[in-house]
């Protein structure tokens, strides 16, 4: 392969490519500077350059690639799933439940979204398909009372994992965020350790607003980990790089489609290569 000295024009191209992957201008500029510091003026081929970019990104992502594990004892491990509207929470819960069932864990779902039209029916259909029980209440009912019942049922029946769906909410809606912290408090009433996990579901097609989502949901609901959905499209999810630098929250998994088999463990090297345009 032909090599050329790494110059500013090439570094500009790298920075632009990173911005196109949604890293945002600051994170993209930081990676550019790191590359410049290490290799400016050195002979490098295009492939080597991309590999170098991928390595910079992977170094940022590796520390936050932490799988979701079921360890809670006494049972159940309570997993609360939150995020903005339409990000993929309900579908991700179905995928996660399927994943856990495959690993022989007993799973219970809670239909904590009583607001959106047919949200309960959506989760009920998934529960049926996967073959797991579901705690549900009336449409328009109080989500807090449903999650309370769900923790009780999960505890009484010795279920390994309780996964709680919630209504989508934009992080700037004060009242809805307050409702979320209430749901969180109610989960802890019967079991002070609960929720053990608070998963924020991010949509890969979202841009820099994902950072504000992390910031606010973390503050209000104590996010413990991230899942990014819709990485099967052309969006590359580069915002995860900025997120890893700023918040250091574990990234557990990614969604790559609409079926129950489409959840993957978060592989930092693969995602880094996709963002860098190697894979």
């Amino acid at each position: 392969a032909t090599k050329a000295r790494l110059d500013d024009a090439t570094l500009d191209d790298v920075e632009d490519a990173l911005i196109s992957s949604d890293l945002g201008p600051s994170a993209a500029a930081r990676i550019r500077e790191r590359l410049r510091a290490k290799r400016f003026g050195l002979e490098i081929s295009e492939t080597e350059l991309k590999e170098a970019v991928a390595e910079e990104i992977a170094a940022i992502l590796r520390p936050v690639a932490i799988p979701l594990e079921i360890t809670a004892f006494p049972r159940p491990q309570v997993i609360l799933v939150i995020g903005v509207n339409g990000s993929g929470k309900t579908t991700t819960i179905a995928k996660l439940a399927h994943w856990l069932v495959e690993d022989d864990y007993g799973v219970l779902l809670a239909a904590g979204d009583t607001f959106r039209a047919a949200a309960i029916g959506q989760l009920a259909t998934w529960a049926d398909r996967i073959g797991v029980p579901l705690v549900r209440g009336p449409e328009g009912g109080d989500p807090a009372s449903i999650v309370f019942d769900a923790v009780k049922q999960a505890t009484d029946t010795g279920i390994d994992a309780l996964v709680v769906d919630t209504a989508g909410r934009l992080q700037n809606k004060r009242e809805l965020m307050e409702e979320l912290s209430k749901i969180r408090r109610v989960l802890g009433k019967l079991n002070p350790e609960a929720p053990h996990d608070v998963l924020l579901v991010l949509d890969a097609t979202n841009g820099q607003n994902a950072l504000s989502q992390i910031e606010t949901f973390k503050e209000v609901a104590g996010v413990t980990g991230l899942i990014m959905t819709k990485l099967d499209g052309t969006a590359r999810g580069g915002v995860l790089v900025a997120a890893a630098e700023q918040y250091g929250l574990p990234i557990h998994a990614i969604g790559v489609g609409e079926t129950i088999d489409d959840l993957r463990p978060f592989d930092p090297d693969l995602v880094a290569r996709v963002i860098a345009g190697v894979a």
């Binding site: 911005i19 196109s20 992957s21 949604d22 903005v84 339409g86 949509d203 890969a204 097609t205 979202n206 841009g207 820099q208 607003n209 994902a210 499209g233 052309t234 969006a235 915002v239």
Partner: peptide, 12 residues
């Protein structure tokens, strides 16, 4: 289109 969309907007 979601107004939260990032760079992928052009592809879409």
């Amino acid at each position: 289109v979601d107004s939260l969309t990032g760079q992928d907007a052009v592809n879409v």
